[in-house]
Design a protein around this nucleic acid. Structure first.
Lengths: 208, 208
DNA sequence: AGCGTCATGTAATGTGTTACATGATTCG
DNA sequence: CGAATCATGTAACACATTACATGACGCT
């Protein structure tokens, strides 16, 4: 039913272009200067990704300053791109997502909040917290089987995993409460074409 | 000076083979059944990686049960492989490591503890904690620039990053204290060839 | 007889990384 | 004038994912 996941870099680019049109270089800067530094941030990754997204019809690039000597290719989401983004954001959060792609969950949360509103963002957090809370007991059981003799450092490393997931769950539950506290406007403001403001929005999400 | 990093999967395999000889299928099982589930755990990744390591001289594979109808190729580290592993474990922990390869740091910590002893493991933790404690204020500064209007969900996601790094640092400091508390034997027991015990060691480290 | 596990691999495809390449503009 | 930044890309390479392929063994 639900679409298969697209590469994280493409999801990140799609989400950032949903906020505002940007050039390849703009995206490069976002990845290298903000907390989204978990991404490649190298031209060899970003420009090909933009080309792929353009071929698949999710984005279009308009050349700005065609007359001047320094043209910029500014990309924006198409209607199809918006649909793709929404389908991606709507994917359920699975065990696999939290074990192997937890950065992607954070991306989806942030973009879902902006594109689909607090209701969907909360759903993602609920599923995220739930999967973790199911997984944690298993990890703790594994911890119990580790004796001092057989892997003291593995023991520490496993405890690290447990600490991380616990912090994840605590964070998610807290944000759920905070989102519930305020008035949920049910649908966030929509972003239309808006002729290219050059402003960097910092955004978070660890090594996403 | 210090060698460039090898792929994480190869590092993981090398470290696991330092504990005991294993077959490709054994490694597969470790990745799929223990908390090291962050790895590919697919034959299409592991067998080629073993072949690469063999070509580069880090491991050798001996066929076991050659006569029977179900042969197993059991790999073990060579002397050169041990040296490579030690050089990899000895690499300093950089900002880039914590932002983009934090799983690798956990691997290196666990293996360094076993292969090089508590002294080196502690050094890794110190560097890990230090880099994080330098990075955290920058993230908090970024958080301060995020207004409610300009990215409420980015705000939450950034706070998630901050929570994670804080938990990382807390964990590291705690383990450092625990390692200091006990008698540091300065060099862990060395593992020699040891004819193939078939025992799974569970080991931790999140999405490593 | 069929299913699950043991056990090994290969092939196609896609994608990230590294390094290179080019040239304009701005600032000191 | 030189260095840093703006701005865009390409090419070679390495690597992971997915899917496929094979076959023995043990159990029911």
């Amino acid at each position: 039913m639900s679409e298969r996941p697209i590469p994280l870099l493409e999801l990140a680019i799609t989400g950032l272009l949903a906020q505002q049109p940007r050039s390849g270089y703009d995206l490069l800067k976002v990845f290298s200067e903000t907390a989204m530094g978990g991404f490649s941030s190298s031209p060899g990754a970003i420009y090909p990704a933009l080309k792929r997204l353009e071929r698949s019809g999710s984005v279009t690039g308009d050349v700005e300053n065609r007359d001047t000597l320094r043209p910029r290719r500014v990309y924006r989401l198409t209607a199809a791109g918006v649909e793709t983004l929404k389908r991606q954001l709507g994917r359920p959060v699975t065990r696999d997502d939290i074990v192997r792609h937890s950065d992607g969950v954070m991306l989806r949360f942030a973009f879902a909040g902006e594109v689909l509103g607090p209701h969907e963002a909360t759903r993602i957090l609920e599923q995220f917290a739930h999967e973790i809370e199911c997984y944690l007991p298993e990890l703790k059981a594994q911890l119990a089987t580790l004796t001092e003799a057989e892997g003291r450092y593995g023991f520490f490393a496993l405890r690290h995993g447990i600490d991380m997931y616990s912090a994840d769950a605590r964070w998610a539950r807290k944000v759920i409460r905070e989102l519930k506290g305020r008035v949920p406007p049910r649908q966030a403001k929509r972003q239309t074409v808006e002729p290219v403001r050059r402003k960097r929005s910092k955004r978070g999400g660890r090594r996403p």
